[in-house]
């Protein structure tokens, strides 16, 4: 396993563009902390975002994992190209000839995905912990470390998404087209939802079916955190609207994304086995 990771490390770290994107990604993750600096000072209205409770434990786990997940697109580029470049450079052929088995080849890519997702999770954990320590109104240990399932959801979400990217890289073999395909797929999920609800089944059933699709199921893992904010809640109260949100992470949502992950990795392996290089 260490050997497979070392192989992938040599491939990634010696490429200037991958190195740049990876560094940029982690810098961006850290930049969540900059949200704390958002301050408006317009005459009598003084607004400091950090004081609005977004950095309160345990809400911060929800908020930060949600925001951090947006940056995953940067790593998606790295992952799609680390797969498809093996085809464009034909190095996948040479790797196999040199004695890497097809299973090891997929394993080395998947392990890299796990490492990326793992480091991202640790990063978000540390950044959130520090921010929380600085700005949170509650600092009791039991509160600080509650709702940590958002971190698990974050990890699973990244692993699922990156596995999808790996699969697209193998399927399409060209990084630009694979990324294009990713965008088309995201739109396609909405189109499927629209068609289902419009013609085939009721909108409620369509919503359930939509939540089973890969990208949608990953998005559902961490729901948007904004309507949980006190400020938003109080505005809603004033206009007589009650926002009832089920924002928790559910085990079946995690199972669903893990299911997609297994499928994508298996399909990647099956494609690699079946194809002549």
């Amino acid at each position: 396993m260490k050997r497979l990771l070392q192989i992938e490390y040599i491939k990634l770290w010696n490429s200037r563009s991958s190195r740049f994107l990876i560094v940029a990604y982690f810098v961006l993750l850290t930049s969540i902390a900059l949200i704390a600096a958002i301050k408006f000072d317009i005459g009598p209205i003084e607004f400091h975002l950090a004081d609005q409770g977004i950095f309160n434990f345990p809400y911060i786990w929800h908020f930060n994992t949600f925001v951090a997940a947006i940056f995953k697109l940067f790593l998606a580029i790295v992952i799609v190209s680390m797969m498809s470049n093996e085809y464009t450079n034909k190095t996948i052929k040479q790797n196999l000839i040199d004695g890497l088995s097809k299973k090891e080849f997929i394993a080395s890519k998947f392990l890299t995905v796990l490492v990326f997702a793992g480091i991202s999770t640790v990063f978000v954990f540390v950044v959130s912990l520090i921010l929380g320590m600085m700005y949170s109104d509650y600092n009791e240990i039991s509160i600080v470390f509650s709702d940590l399932e958002f971190l698990l959801a974050f990890f699973v979400k990244l692993v699922g998404f990156f596995s999808f990217c790996l699969f697209l890289g193998i399927l399409v073999k060209r990084s630009a087209f694979a990324l294009g395909f990713l965008i088309i797929w995201a739109i396609l999920e909405q189109v499927i939802f629209g068609l289902l609800g419009w013609k085939l089944v009721s909108w409620d059933t369509a919503k359930i079916l939509k939540s089973l699709l890969p990208l949608e199921s990953m998005a559902n893992l961490i729901k948007e955190p904004f309507s949980r904010l006190n400020a938003v809640q109080s505005v809603a109260d004033q206009i007589g609207e009650r926002i009832e949100l089920n924002y928790h992470v559910h085990w079946y949502e995690i199972a669903l994304v893990l299911g997609w992950t297994v499928l994508f990795i298996y399909l990647s392996y099956a494609l690699l086995r079946k194809r002549d290089l």
């Binding site: 040599i10 491939k11 010696n14 200037r16 450079n89 190095t91 052929k93 040479q94 000839i97 040199d98």
Partner: peptide
């Protein structure tokens, strides 16, 4: 073994 063209990572 070497098959057809030499295949290596161009950026390394």
């Amino acid at each position: 073994a070497i098959i057809e063209r030499p295949n290596f990572y161009p950026y390394m």
